[in-house]
C-alpha cells in the first residue's frame, strides 16, 4: 500500500510559509506517495493557490473558519484530525507553529510522533537528530497505524513550483474550543531576509556587548543582503530579540554562508548551523570551539574586523 501524506500548511493568512514547501519535498522523497496539503484559514484562497503550485502536490484541501484567523493549536488540531482519517502520515514543519500544533494532533489521534525528521527511509523508517544533534537516530514504526511528524526544514530543499493541483473546499462541522484566545503578536518589522530561509546569515554573540553593538552587524548584513541571527547569550542579555536565536532551542538554519561573530561555538549553538554550507568564525580567542567547525577562521577583535569587511565588500 502506498503512503498517503497530509501536509499541514503554515501561513499568515496571505502567504504560504516557505517551510511548507520543505515539508512537501520531504514527503516527496517517499516514492509513490500521494501528497495532499491542508490549508486551515479564515480565508484560504490566496494560500491555497500558492500551495497548489508546489510540485508533487496532488490536491489542496481548504477549511475556512473565522476561528482560524490566528493559528491556535487547540483550535486547529481538531480540524487537522478531522481531515487526517484517510492518511497514513500527517506532517507539519518543525517551526514553532508546527511543533506546537502537530504534537497536539498526535495526542488527539493517539498516534506516535517523529519530531524533526531529517530523512524518510521508508514509509515506516525515519531519521532524526537527538542530543542537540550529537547523535542521529533511526526509528521505525512498530505497528501499522498513522504516524505524525515534524519536518526539519534545514534538511530539505524547497519543492519547486509550477504545479497546478486542484483545490477542494472541505466543510467540517466541529465545535471548536474557545478556551484559548489570541491576544496579540509583536513581530519586529525588518526589510532583511527571513532568518530561516536567508542564503546568508551573520550572527552575533555575547561579545557584541549591547543592542547597540549589534548595529555593526546590521550594517554589514544590509550591505550583503544577509539576515542577522544571535546566540542564546546575546538574546538572554537583551542585545537581540528572541526570534533571532539560532541553535538547539532556537532556529535551525541552513544558509549558504554563516558568519559567527563573537560566538564561542557551544554545542547548543552549533546544532543550529550544522547544515550551513560555509561557516566563517570571527573570534578573538583562537581556541574557541567555533573554529573546529569553521571553514574560514579569523582570529581578532570583531569591532575592528567587521567594519573592515564592510569597507571591502562596499
Amino acid at each position: 500500500m502506498s503512503a498517503r501524506i497530509l501536509v499541514v500548511a503554515e501561513h499568515d493568512g496571505t502567504r504560504l510559509n516557505p517551510s511548507t514547501a520543505k515539508c512537501v519535498s520531504c514527503a516527496g522523497t517517499l516514492a509513490g506517495a500521494e501528497i495532499v496539503v491542508a490549508v486551515c484559514a479564515a480565508d484560504a484562497a490566496a494560500v491555497a493557490a500558492q500551495a497548489a503550485q508546489l510540485a508533487g502536490v496532488s490536491r489542496v484541501l481548504t477549511v475556512e473558519n473565522p476561528a482560524n484567523r490566528h493559528a491556535l493549536a487547540a483550535v486547529l488540531a481538531p480540524q487537522v484530525v478531522a481531515l487526517a482519517a484517510p492518511f497514513s502520515h500527517v506532517l507539519g514543519p518543525s517551526t514553532t507553529f508546527g511543533k506546537d500544533l502537530m504534537a497536539r494532533v498526535a495526542g488527539l489521534l493517539d498516534a506516535p510522533q517523529v519530531s524533526d525528521i531529517m530523512a524518510i527511509e521508508s514509509a515506516q523508517r525515519f531519521r532524526r537528530p537527538i542530543y542537540a544533534g550529537n547523535a542521529i537516530l533511526t526509528v521505525e514504526l512498530a505497528g501499522g497505524g498513522k504516524v505524525v511528524g515534524t519536518v526539519r526544514a534545514a534538511s530539505f530543499e524547497a519543492a519547486a513550483t509550477g504545479g497546478s493541483a486542484p483545490i477542494e473546499k472541505v466543510a467540517l462541522h466541529l465545535e471548536l474550543p474557545t478556551h484559548t484566545r489570541f491576544v496579540s503578536v509583536s513581530a519586529a518589522k525588518t526589510d532583511r531576509p527571513d532568518l530561516q530561509t536567508a542564503r546568508r546569515v551573520i550572527s552575533g554573540g555575547r561579545a557584541l556587548g549591547s543592542a547597540d553593538g549589534f548595529k555593526i552587524l546590521y550594517s554589514l548584513a544590509d550591505k550583503i543582503g544577509a539576515a542577522v541571527g544571535a546566540s542564546r547569550a546575546a538574546v538572554d542579555a537583551g542585545y537581540a530579540p528572541n526570534e533571532m536565536q539560532v541553535g538547539q532551542t532556537g532556529k535551525i538554519i541552513a544558509p549558504e554562508l554563516y558568519v559567527a561573530v563573537g560566538i564561542s561555538g557551544a554545542i547548543q549553538h552549533l546544532t543550529g548551523i550544522k547544515d550551513a554550507r560555509t561557516i566563517v568564525a570571527i573570534n578573538k580567542d583562537g581556541e574557541a570551539p567555533i573554529f573546529e567547525v569553521a571553514d574560514f577562521g579569523l582570529v581578532g577583535d570583531l569591532f575592528q574586523i567587521i567594519p573592515e569587511i564592510e569597507k571591502l565588500v562596499g
Binding site: 498516534a111 506516535p112 517523529v114 523508517r125 537528530p129 544533534g133 550529537n134 547523535a135 542521529i136 537516530l137 533511526t138 526509528v139 521505525e140 514504526l141 512498530a142 505497528g143 497505524g145 550544522k274 561557516i279 573546529e292 567547525v293 569553521a294 571553514d295 574560514f296 577562521g297
Partner: peptide, 16 residues
Amino acid sequence: QLRLVRFEPPPQRQKG
C-alpha cells in the same frame, strides 16, 4: 510504538 533501530554519530565537518 517507535522501535529504535540505530544510533549514529553525526557527520563531521571538515576542519577549515
